[in-house]
Design a protein around this nucleic acid. Structure first.
Length: 493
RNA sequence: CGGGGAGUAGCGCAGGCCGGUAGCGCAUCUGGUUUGGGACCAGGGGGUCGCAGGUUCGAAUCCUGUCUCCCCGACCA
């Protein structure tokens, strides 16, 4: 074995790194905190992006593009916003280099200092709302439903491949509305889009909820989120949708005249998901043999491996012919398939390699199979193999891919559900967090101070207050004060 | 920024305490045999030992400084 993975039990972090690196998703780069997304990882991102993009378009949004650079003064216009992002901004101060007169290569030209420094966007609310000001006069200019696919930079202290990098790819939707109600509906609608995407495409169950004040986006009135559960029992925020109220409209003076000829500030939302979803996908499904990709997003859904026999050229030809016919049928059904007839690696090597890469279905074809009009079909999720007739094979594979997709979801859902624990005492709370992990459903007195205290004592935060949460009288797990509902705590990425 | 670990061939590592001019596995190249779970045989190529100073006749090895990366924590999507 040339590429052995660390097992999840041995070292979960190392297992994750091994998967990302050896599975061919990404590499470390020469720049601290920044990663190279390799073709296989980028192919996965393209599939995610394309599907999300379709869903955004279906809900009435259009794509646009705003600048990478934001004038420093813009960022400071919304108080909470600048507070939230100031500590992690990259700043452009100069616009020119020159040769070092002392012979030390190039240096920043001190004479090329910018009048106003530019921030590399950590998010685009400010540049976008400064623009929307010019787009909106009347209620007839609303709503604005715009999304952009972009890179952003947040100078994180500690980074992890895909989960937290200094630069990452994402989409950010920014919408403007005439009424509070409409903006809230938009926020909820996009949360629903994210939840559907996570569950139906990533096969990753999520809990929809609202963030507490502590965890809210800087500048939002309400932050909605989808929270997922990883295999090590830690929670991961997979997407957020913010109701921004009139905060940014006020900061950038974006007003409109309504039907009653009254002037009001515009109501806003923003929502985003990032390449972090790739990290979520990896940690939600993969195993000690490597990645496990959900068929709907897998860059490669089916790989066909020929089992040649050099002494029988005629049989090898029949294998190639059969594979060609199978590929034609699969492609006709829109299935992403590859024929790996590279004769420099042997079948066993290929089997291991495609398992590491998480290709959902593998078909092996040898001379022996052809004599019986069958092939060997292996599924990655359950690591099982069976002999399947060549007749109607593409239909069989199509059904199998759908079955894998649904099996992966149900497996992840079962795991997630088993990792939601209701607790009613502090002892239990700490015990469950330490010994079992996962979400802990407990009463909380509703104060930020209590949440902070709990975080300090246990490193657990409130991941969300689930939507449509059951109302139930109870006592705060820490303070014993009255509480009307349970919230979900967890240690999180 | 604190705590831990590591920089020696493309990858993974040994050598270091006891200084003498670098080795193993995998990968790679050539030829051959092979192909149903990471093949085998034979031959070959590849390294200013992270960087900079110092000690010494001589430094991967000792000393000083410095840089980088990974893991854990504080900050966060």
């Amino acid at each position: 074995m040339s590429s052995v993975l660390t097992s999840r039990d041995t070292d979960y972090s190392q297992w994750y790194n091994d998967l990302v690196l050896k599975g061919g998703l990404a590499d470390y780069s020469a720049v601290r905190g920044c990663m190279v997304i390799k073709p296989y990882g980028y192919g996965l991102w393209e599939n995610m992006r394309d599907q999300l993009d379709r869903m955004f378009k279906e809900t009435g949004h259009q794509n646009a593009y705003f600048p990478l650079f934001i004038p420093k003064s813009f960022l400071s216009k919304e108080a909470a916003h600048v507070e939230g992002f100031a500590k992690e901004c990259a700043v452009v101060t100069h616009y020119r280099l020159k040769n070092d007169p002392n012979g030390g290569g190039v240096i920043v030209d001190p004479e090329a200092k910018l009048e106003e420094e530019l921030i590399v966007r950590p998010t685009s609310e400010t540049i976008i709302w400064s623009t929307y000001k010019n787009w909106v006069q009347s209620y007839r200019d609303l709503p604005i439903l715009v999304n952009q696919w972009a890179n952003v930079v947040r100078w994180e202290m500690r980074t992890r491949l895909f989960l937290r990098t200094a630069e990452f790819l994402w989409q950010e939707g920014h919408t403007a509305h005439a009424t509070r109600q409409e903006a809230i509906e938009e926020t909820e609608k996009m949360l629903e889009v994210y939840a559907t995407f996570a569950e139906e495409y990533m096969a990753m169950p999520v809990i929809k909820g609202v963030k507490t004040a502590n965890e809210r986006f800087a500048g939002a009135e309400d932050t909605y989120c989808i929270e997922a559960m990883m295999q090590d029992g830690k929670a991961l925020q997979a997407g957020t949708s913010h109701f921004l109220g009139q905060n940014f409209a006020k900061a950038f003076d974006v007003t409109f005249t309504d039907r009653e000829n009254k002037i009001d500030h515009v109501w806003a939302t923003s929502w985003g998901v990032s390449t972090r979803l790739i990290g979520a996908l990896v940690m939600a499904h993969s195993d000690d043999q490597g990645l496990v990709m959900p068929p709907k997003l897998a860059p490669l859904q089916v790989v066909i491996v020929p089992i040649y026999n050099k002494k029988d050229a005629e049989a090898s030809q029949r294998i190639d012919d059969t594979a060609a016919a199978v590929i034609k049928e699969l492609k006709a059904k829109g299935i992403r398939v590859k024929y790996d007839n590279d004769d420099t690696t042997r079948p066993g090597w290929k089997f291991a390699e495609y398992e590491l890469r998480g290709v959902p279905v593998r078909i092996a074809i040898g001379a022996r199979d052809l004599e019986n009009n069958v092939v060997e079909v292996a599924r990655r999720d359950e690591k099982t193999k069976e002999t399947v007739s060549l007749d109607g094979l593409s239909g069989t594979i199509e059904t199998l891919l759908a079955d894998i997709q649904s099996n992966m979801f149900h497996k992840a859902q079962k795991f997630r559900d088993e990792h939601i624990t209701r607790v009613d005492s502090w002892e239990e709370f700490v015990k469950v967090l330490d010994e079992k992990g996962g979400f802990v459903s407990a009463h909380w007195d509703g104060t930020p101070a209590t949440e902070d205290k709990i975080k300090e004592m246990t490193k657990a935060t409130i991941r969300c207050i689930p939507l449509n949460n059951e109302q139930e009288e109870g006592k705060c797990v820490l303070t014993g004060n009255a509480s009307k509902e349970r919230v979900l705590f967890a240690r999180a990425y």
